[in-house]
Each structure stands twice: as C-alpha cells, then as structure tokens.
Simulated scan of single mutants.
Amino acid sequence: MSVWSRVSGRTRKVLAAGMRALSPPLAGGYYEELEDLLVSADMGPAMAARLAAAVRVRAPRTSEEAESALSEAALAAMSKRPRELDLSGSPACILLYGINGAGKTTTIGKLAHRLRTQGRNPLVVAADTYRAAGIEQMLAWAERAGAASFAGKPGADPAAVVFDGVRHARSRGNDVVLVDTAGRLQTQRNLLEELAKVGRVTTKARDGGAYESLLVLDAVLGLSSLAQARAFHKAIPITGLVLAKLDGSAKGGAVIAIENELDVPVKLAGVGEGIDDLEPFDPEAFVRSWFED
C-alpha cells in the first residue's frame, strides 16, 4: 500500500464507497447524487458543483469513466505553483505558523530531520516567546532531529529573535533556518500584525531575499481551515501549505477547495506520528488514491 493510500484511507471510505453506491452515470439524478457525495468529502458546495459539472461535460458511461473524469477535474482545480521547497539563499529560511494545536512544532521537528537526512544543516529557531513550554518543546524536537537550535528568551520580541537567529545561522554555517512561531487565531489582529512584522524582519535579515512562508493546517478540520488561511494570507503572503495529521482526516477533499481559492500549493503533509512521517505532497497520487481498493 502506498503512503497516499494509507493517508487518504478515511477520505477514501467516504468517496470510494459513495461512488459505488451512486446510480449509474447514465441514470437520472446521478450528478445531483455525485454533488452531494463531494460535499460529504468536505469539498464545499461551490467546488462540489464545479467538479460535478466537469464530470457531466465528459459524459461518462461507466462508473470507472466517471471516477477518471472526477480525478482529472480535481487535479485541474488545484494550484499549479511549484510544490518543492525553495531552499535558495544562504541561509534559506522557512517560516511556519498557524493556530494553536495545528501541528507547527511537530512539523518543524520532522522537517529538520528530513533536511538532515538530505545532507542539510538546519537551525531550528524557537520564536514562540509567549510560552516557555513552547520553547522547551521546540528545543526537544530539534534535539530529537539532531538539529542545532536557537531560542529566544520568554517575553522577547519574536521578530528580533528571528533576526538574530538568521544571523546566528549565517555565522555558524547552517544552510536552512526553520522558524517556529507562536500559535495565533486568525481573528487576533494584533498577533497577525506581529506575524507580518516577523516576515518583514526575515526579509531584512536575509538582505532582501525571499523565504518560504508555510501555513500549517490541521487536516482534521477540513474546509473550516479556509477561513484561517484567508486571514493569514492577508497578513503574510503564504508560499505553501502544510497539512498536518492528514492520516487522521476524512476531510481530504478540502485540499481541492483551499488550493483553488488561494492558488497556494500544499507542499508537505504529515502522514503519521513518527519523526519520518512527513512527505512532499503529491497531488496526483493523493487524488488517485481516493478510488483505489
């Protein structure tokens, strides 16, 4: 079984079983049933209607043809932007943020481990200065990953910590900086403004260079994450998404709607609880796995 078949298991139970239960494509009411099924996979009413219409245009005669048409329509709706992490610059910088409990700290630990296995020398910057426990948790994950770390003092200005962390990485020869920020709700205007400041300071620390700006979403929340993503995108332009806990979600269809609205690609996916369980997101394999037995 592929990693994507395993990860999409709960979504597949909804879609594969649902597709088998539908009337034949040539029967009356098929497309209304299909639309309802897509809504149940958390694609949202608008995207469900769009995909059902795309399948109708193909006029499938069998369930297999309908599944093929649906897969193609789903992939066509997703972002076409590059999914590879931008690791250019000296050092490269990856800023991760999201709401409390989304999985940021765990994702950074896994990503630090992944980069180490690829021959990189990452520095983890613990910039969640609001919680001493948050700093300790991030440093513990860095140690587990075998990565160097740099921590701000509790109560310090997060933007200053990031600035100093990037400079520290440059002086010590670390080639990638991974920044853990404080969890914040999309409704907390002051904290969103602080995040925007962190972004500006990161650019300054890298002498104007670009950086990866990754929003970590809890895949279990499905389409309700879209409101979060909209608000964060206004505060700091998102270059990519990370879907944490994708292996525990029956709402994988939300990926289609979120990518389509924001035109931001999912770059990484959390596919389990182990330190190795972080994968580059493969949209074709993910969508294809929905219909595999």
Rank of each mutant, 00 (worst) to 15 (best):
residue 40 S to Y: 13
residue 212 E to M: 13
residue 223 L to W: 00
residue 258 I to F: 02
residue 60 P to I: 00
residue 182 A to F: 02
residue 5 S to D: 14
residue 288 R to T: 02
residue 91 P to F: 07
residue 235 A to H: 01
residue 140 A to C: 04
residue 169 A to E: 08
residue 213 S to Y: 03
residue 31 Y to V: 05
residue 250 A to I: 01
residue 57 V to H: 08
residue 1 M to Q: 02
residue 67 E to M: 14
residue 30 Y to W: 02
residue 40 S to E: 15
residue 238 I to G: 04
residue 283 P to Y: 04
residue 10 R to F: 15
residue 20 R to W: 06
residue 252 G to F: 11
residue 83 R to V: 01
residue 260 N to T: 04
residue 223 L to D: 00
residue 133 A to G: 11
residue 218 D to F: 09
residue 226 L to T: 03
residue 279 E to R: 15
residue 189 R to Q: 13
residue 229 A to R: 09
residue 209 G to K: 05
residue 228 Q to P: 06
residue 204 K to T: 11
residue 291 F to R: 09
residue 131 R to Q: 11
residue 225 S to W: 01
residue 7 V to Q: 06
residue 248 G to H: 05
residue 122 P to T: 00
residue 79 S to M: 08
residue 67 E to S: 12
residue 175 D to N: 15
residue 269 A to F: 04
residue 153 K to Y: 05
residue 202 T to Y: 07
residue 258 I to W: 06
residue 269 A to K: 07
residue 241 L to C: 15
residue 267 K to M: 00
residue 234 K to M: 08
residue 279 E to T: 10
residue 3 V to N: 10
residue 27 A to T: 02
residue 292 E to L: 09
residue 170 R to D: 06
residue 221 L to W: 01
residue 48 A to V: 12
residue 198 V to M: 06
residue 101 G to F: 10
residue 81 R to H: 12
residue 248 G to A: 14
residue 234 K to F: 08
residue 56 R to I: 05
residue 237 P to L: 03
residue 48 A to P: 09
residue 7 V to F: 07
residue 278 L to A: 06
residue 166 V to L: 01
residue 249 S to A: 09
residue 46 A to H: 04
residue 263 D to I: 11
residue 67 E to P: 06
residue 293 D to N: 14
residue 75 L to K: 08
residue 62 T to L: 12
residue 91 P to D: 03
residue 219 A to R: 08
residue 80 K to Y: 00
residue 262 L to Q: 01
residue 262 L to G: 01
residue 113 H to E: 04
residue 238 I to Y: 05
residue 86 D to L: 12
residue 88 S to E: 05
residue 130 Y to W: 14
residue 121 N to D: 01
residue 37 L to M: 14
residue 135 I to W: 08
residue 15 L to G: 11
residue 200 R to Y: 08
residue 28 G to E: 13
residue 230 R to G: 00
residue 229 A to N: 08
residue 80 K to Q: 10
residue 28 G to F: 01
residue 108 I to Y: 11
residue 204 K to R: 12
residue 69 A to Q: 10
residue 152 G to S: 14
residue 55 V to D: 08
residue 100 N to D: 06
residue 167 R to V: 05
residue 125 V to N: 04
residue 256 I to M: 09
residue 228 Q to G: 06
residue 195 L to Y: 04
residue 114 R to V: 01
residue 246 L to D: 02
residue 21 A to L: 03
residue 108 I to K: 10
residue 117 T to R: 15
residue 145 A to R: 09
residue 69 A to S: 14
residue 84 E to S: 11
residue 64 E to P: 02
residue 53 A to C: 09
residue 27 A to K: 10
residue 286 F to V: 06
residue 18 G to H: 10
residue 29 G to D: 11
residue 216 V to A: 07
residue 220 V to I: 13
residue 222 G to W: 03
residue 164 D to F: 13
residue 97 Y to S: 12
residue 105 T to D: 10
residue 167 R to E: 14
residue 271 V to G: 14
residue 232 F to M: 07
residue 173 G to L: 04
residue 211 Y to N: 03
residue 75 L to H: 07
residue 211 Y to T: 02
residue 175 D to M: 10
residue 178 L to Q: 03
residue 274 G to E: 13
residue 139 L to E: 15
residue 156 A to L: 04
residue 138 M to I: 07
residue 164 D to N: 15
residue 256 I to R: 10
residue 144 R to H: 08
